[in-house]
Nucleic acid binder design. Structure first.
Ligand SMILES: [Mn+2]
Ligand SMILES: [Mn+2]
Ligand SMILES: [Mn+2]
Ligand SMILES: [Mn+2]
Lengths: 157, 157
DNA sequence: GAAAAAAGTTAGCCAAGGCTAAGACATTGT
DNA sequence: ACAATGTCTTAGCCTTGGCTAACTTTTTTC
């Protein structure tokens, strides 16, 4: 390690300096952690939506919606099954397990809160949808509550 | 593809149905796109901060701050160099190229806007730092401007 | 009911981003 | 000066998440 004089004083009015090391580590660790479940969350959310709005969730629909190949979907579904989130017979439609249903529900609600929050902030619908798709996985419970509060107080209607 | 009756009408008051397919694809594509540069952005931002606040940016400091092994840093630095973002001699401190400097500056500003926005929203400092670290990479110019506007209008002082 | 089309799977490739273990280089202390 | 310590790199391993190509299974069409 090299010199680290700025870490000594908890200076109250120098907020653009480097944060203390341990805190910095926690920031990046939280991001890496979110990245591990991100894709699985999007899959179960989408599968849940497809079941709800189209009656079944086929790999082909997922591939079309996600903009990836069917082979990629097939491999990811294997992972979803190995984690106990999805159930399926070969060559058949996909279903969510209890656990998958729970994750989908959480993701659906969280996604909706972030999306509505961005709209309320004044962001256009198409941009809000794009940004919400990525942001949702990095929003803590606390921030989610702050967003809900804001939307409740500022939303037209 | 299976049946898709809900996609026919651009129904104005059914906002929780599935978005049209092409838009859905763009959402996920934007996320995948952000993931390609995310880590590089965090690296150049950190390198810039280390140069500014400690005079030099050593791999050991980056490893300590990011909470990863030195081997991981070494490999990522190779990638940063191959993309023309970082310059360095073997076993020496790291420096940013023009291009790296520009990316660091962008990342620094964007990160600061998101962090200050979350604080202004009422999120605690430690949570705001964690969430901002992940959210920053998924915030478009338009959303960034909405955040700045909000902070300007609501910030104490 | 057979041929054609569509859907799903598998194999094999790749890059990114993590790790450990081993060794090379540099700095520092005596 | 040189040994000890600390820093950096390399090699080799792993998982994730993409791809194409080839194949199998199911569904649709005739
Ligand atoms: Mn989502
Ligand atoms: Mn998402
Ligand atoms: Mn950042
Ligand atoms: Mn970040």
């Amino acid at each position: 390690m090299t010199a680290s004089p700025p870490d000594s004083t908890p200076d109250p009015h120098m907020s653009d300096a480097l944060p203390p090391c341990e805190q910095h580590v926690r920031q990046y660790a939280a991001v890496r952690n979110a990245h591990e479940t991100e894709l699985l969350e999007d899959y179960v959310e989408l599968i849940g939506d497809l079941l709800k709005y189209q009656g079944e969730a086929r790999s082909a629909d997922i591939a079309a919606r996600m903009g990836v190949s069917q082979a990629t979907v097939s491999k990811t579904v294997t992972r979803l099954k190995s984690q106990g989130l999805v159930d399926s017979q070969p060559y058949r439609s996909l279903f969510l397990t209890e656990k998958g249903e729970a994750m989908a529900e959480m993701a659906r609600k969280r996604h909706a809160i972030v999306l509505q929050f961005l709209r309320t902030l004044g962001v256009s619908d198409s941009t809000a949808r794009i940004d919400a798709e990525g942001m949702e996985h990095h929003v803590s419970r606390e921030t989610l509550e702050a967003m809900e509060r804001f939307t409740r107080e500022h939303c037209r209607g």
